[in-house]
Design a protein around this nucleic acid. Sequence first.
DNA 1: TCGCTCCTGACGGAAACTGACAGTCCAGTT
DNA 2: AACTGGACTGTCAGTTTCCGTCAGGAGCGA
Lengths: 228, 228
Amino acid sequence: MSRAERLLDLLQALRRRRRPVSAARLATELDVSERTIYRDITTLVGQGAAIEGEAGLGYILRPGFTLPPLMFNDEEIEALVLGLRFVALRGDAALRAAAADVLAKVTDVLPGALREKADNSGLLAAPMVPAPVADLSDLRRAIRSERRLSIAYADADGRASTRTIWPIALAFFQTKRILAAWCETRQDFRHFRTDRILSADIGDESYPRRRRVLLAEWRRHEGIPEQD
Amino acid sequence: MSRAERLLDLLQALRRRRRPVSAARLATELDVSERTIYRDITTLVGQGAAIEGEAGLGYILRPGFTLPPLMFNDEEIEALVLGLRFVALRGDAALRAAAADVLAKVTDVLPGALREKADNSGLLAAPMVPAPVADLSDLRRAIRSERRLSIAYADADGRASTRTIWPIALAFFQTKRILAAWCETRQDFRHFRTDRILSADIGDESYPRRRRVLLAEWRRHEGIPEQD
DNA sequence: TCGCTCCTGACGGAAACTGACAGTCCAGTT
DNA sequence: AACTGGACTGTCAGTTTCCGTCAGGAGCGA
């Protein structure tokens, strides 16, 4: 048996039980040495599995590595599918792919009857015009990781300028996308149309305040109520 | 990338699509040779994945692999949350509530780190103008359950007429919502702005054709490609 | 027939894997 | 304080596996 296969088996062996299992036991079950089990566990943890080992007890896999079964009603399925279709039509390529992945994953853990409903949902999203082309994944990553961003930006008259900003949020409108940020130069909140951002360099260090807080401040500043 | 990782990626690449995918395509996507794809497929099948390959077409994965999909990644969380925000701002009250419920259910199964990301996602949906007010849940229910619908409809000049239609889909545009249907009177596909539908009565019997088929026909008729 | 694609076998160099051993560390238990 | 079960680490040398390449077979629809 190849290592890759064994890793999947090991994962299943851990998933199967709720009590801790010793490496020795896993070794017997998978027919390899304990040393190999230790190595495999390291690999799985490296892939993101929350496996906890406690001396004297054994290993246990905390939930959250795989998607558990989910249950939704008809309305919820429709909301979910419609939402993902919106994203598929309005997001950049990476977001579009992610939306497809989410739908596939959720559909997979749905009971059969619901799965069919998800596949045949009659709610459609209108396409964005013009169709989105720019890759916003860098901007999104900067927002996620709270990183400073140096951008070259063209204002309405076409004059370019450079500034350092703290990106807070990205808003998806019908015809444009707007980056909301704290501008270091101006010491104030500023908005940038993504189609006028000529270049963007993600800094090495994160900005000094938590985005969660900035977002709340920005909301108050702009009078935008909480979503959700 | 390790082979184990690639196997999971391959599984997800198959899950993502509902149509068959050729080995060549998968090879490009995963950046390995076709031969490797064939070997990986063999391995996955050996682990119990129901992957069917047909010459001239490609591979397709039937649902129900013992190993459920992996947990959402950062991009997927962003796509999911953004999508639900779109729905919350564009759907009727019932859909808005459903979107909130979906988010709650999904958040519930997320591990802590991801949950925080979902709560603080920086991607925002623009509100619909004018804000949606009409309750479309009857229309949605008629679509879901493939029921005949008797509507009173005002045309562009304000003249009201009554007709019986087979509702197929509901499309969400920036400023309006459009019901796509087969019109019994005209014996053709017709579109109805929801804000001009004066009343709608759901019939007791379902219409004689499957919505799935009608939807595909309508797509061809209007030149609207598959979403996803 | 052609074109597309699945599918299999063989080869060989590079890379990864594995068992064995020898220990360390850790947390209950006696 | 010693004991015990078991997690965990480092090293090393011999296997194994992996993977791209090439060469071909076979099914199926146009």
